[in-house]
Amino acid sequence: MPKYSFVVNGKAVTVDAPANLSVLWTLRDKLGVTGPKYGCGINVCKACTSHLDGKAFNPCVTYVSDVQGRRITTIEGLADPDGTLHPVQEAWLEQDVPQCGYCQPGQIMAVAALLARTRTPTDAEIDAIENVCRCGTYFRIRKAIKSAAAKIAAREAAG
């Protein structure tokens, strides 16, 4: 079986896996990284959303062979190594967003990627986030996105 090497949450890993094993099952079943969740397996619910070299991607439809030599960040790696939460996580807590919580790692990773490229997303840009929340927390997610954007701006202003 081929070997693939890449970085997960700052740590170099090598796995034996068939080339077309999805990154979701590579992470969950081979590496024990369970933050990214299965919700559909076909890239429509977005519960597994994580970052590949800083950009949002969906591990359920990405092959392990696609990520050779690349850098994956999952929800477990979003906070600073010293434990300081990412502003999006802080905003999620402040707005008390989660209900069942199952989709929230994906929601948070999608928003962290969005805010990395758009500092102040419009309502239309927020509407374009496709991650399904079956508990229906969307309005709190919207408020948390705006709060996170303000937190990031404040951090930058503080230098």
């Binding site: 369970t34 969740k37 477990e76 906070a79 999620w92 807590l93 919580g101």
Partner: peptide, 14 residues
């Protein structure tokens, strides 16, 4: 339980 949820530490069955 929200901190666990937003940091990926909440364990569901699987």
């Amino acid at each position: 339980d929200a901190v666990k949820m937003v940091t990926g530490q909440m364990d569901y069955t699987l």
